[in-house]
Design a protein around this nucleic acid. Structure first.
Lengths: 225, 225
DNA sequence: TCAAAAATACCTAATTTACGGTATTGCGTT
DNA sequence: AACGCAATACCGTAAATTAGGTATTTTTGA
């Protein structure tokens, strides 16, 4: 462990910036956060453009930026990359009213360090900031829940979507484990012809023509994880 | 929104049980949590067996159980299903010293509501309990970070791990799209023999013997997402 | 209880795959 | 110059797969 990291932390409050087009929310949040002694909202901006201009010229870019995802001119998503390029040390916590899975994925892939819903309390946000400073990636539990629910239900949904039968799903899982027709037949105590028939029916339902497509589809459609 | 939910919350403290073989940790945690007025650790057990016996016979099973994952006789993982069956209303928060990805997946799939590392402070744990009561699924930010890192780096790592060449990776992607040897050859303007050779080399490197295993491996190893 | 759906089994022909070889070319590194 | 490695290409063949049938039994739902 280096001393440097501590020194930043010990200069009392963690400096942050907020970027959010909603001016009242921005002000209220800023003041709420400043009530606590842990963080200090130094500045806030109502557009990514102005924030970018500032971060490129200022002396001390903040270690943390709270970034609203939904903004008129430029989506918060598009702000992640330029902001991080302008200041490599800065970590970004997305703040949003939506809980759209695709956005979460994109935001995190682009290098956001956290993802909070706007229903978060100031305490939640402060906690998240501290977590990010420690190297974590806080994601709102509700968001986590949503993603998990998605993952868990995907296989059932997909199965229903394709009208696959129990046996067919069973065969698909074995195919995905690399088994050949014969092996599957042995494993399920069936004739190889039966397995063949199941496979043909699966192919027809999924409109594919071979095993490798089947495995790919099983993964992309969430039938298998 | 129903009123019922609030009524439960308003009976002051949320009752919880702790199951952890480490007796001193168990006691200390229990007392720490009880310092706060939000939760009340009613009981703690040092084995799943005793906790199960109790939950099956008691009048008021707790809404929340903190369950240690690493225990001598029976892994905490195996406790999830019987505990939930014994008391359907009870939600389980896994508590562990490890941050093994497979365990997280398994635990969550089996119906655990949260996953915290033992480095969590009592405040973290109380917060997590409240989140679960609200229907969320708190996962320790460090754990989230680990999973994310895994997802992001998987393709590169996996590729490096298996020493696959550029061309080989290219072929794998086309296989995953369902193309046959001939189609791939046409697409890449190669001889079908060349594609065949690439495939043979891939099989040797990954120690597999057919296309469907390849696609499965490409997905599970994160070569494809 | 009757019909539909699912699961089972078999056959054949055409096609594709897997895998054992061998071999040439080009591109970096030493 | 020598070497390793990636990429390319070719051959032959046994095994596996796909796709077109037909057909019986079991299960299930209306």
């Amino acid at each position: 462990m280096k001393k440097k990291k501590n020194s930043i932390l010990k200069v009392n409050r963690i400096p942050i910036w907020i970027i959010d087009d909603n001016k009242s929310y921005c002000m209220v949040l800023s003041e709420s956060l400043n009530l606590d002694k842990k963080v200090l909202c130094e500045r806030y901006f109502h557009s990514i453009r102005t924030a970018l201009k500032e971060i490129r010229t200022c002396q001390n870019p903040p270690p943390i930026i709270l970034l609203d995802i939904k903004m008129p001119q430029m989506s918060g998503i598009n702000g992640i990359v330029p902001l991080r390029e302008a200041s490599q040390g800065t970590k970004i916590i997305m703040l949003t009213s939506y809980d759209d899975e695709a956005e979460i994925q994109t935001a995190l892939n682009l290098g956001a360090s956290g993802y909070l819903l706007k229903t978060s309390t100031p305490e939640d946000i402060i906690r998240a900031i501290e977590r990010v400073m420690e190297g974590g990636s806080p994601i709102d539990p509700m968001v986590t829940k949503k993603i998990m629910g998605m993952l868990l239900n995907a296989s059932k949904e997909s199965r229903y979507l394709h009208q696959l039968t129990d046996r067919e799903v069973e065969v698909i899982h074995l195919i995905a484990k690399g088994f050949s027709t014969k092996k599957i037949a042995k494993k399920l105590s069936l004739s190889r012809f039966t397995v063949d028939t199941h496979l043909k029916n699966i192919y027809n339902k999924l409109r594919i023509h071979n095993r490798h497509s089947l495995v790919a589809k099983a993964y992309t459609d969430g039938l298998i994880r």
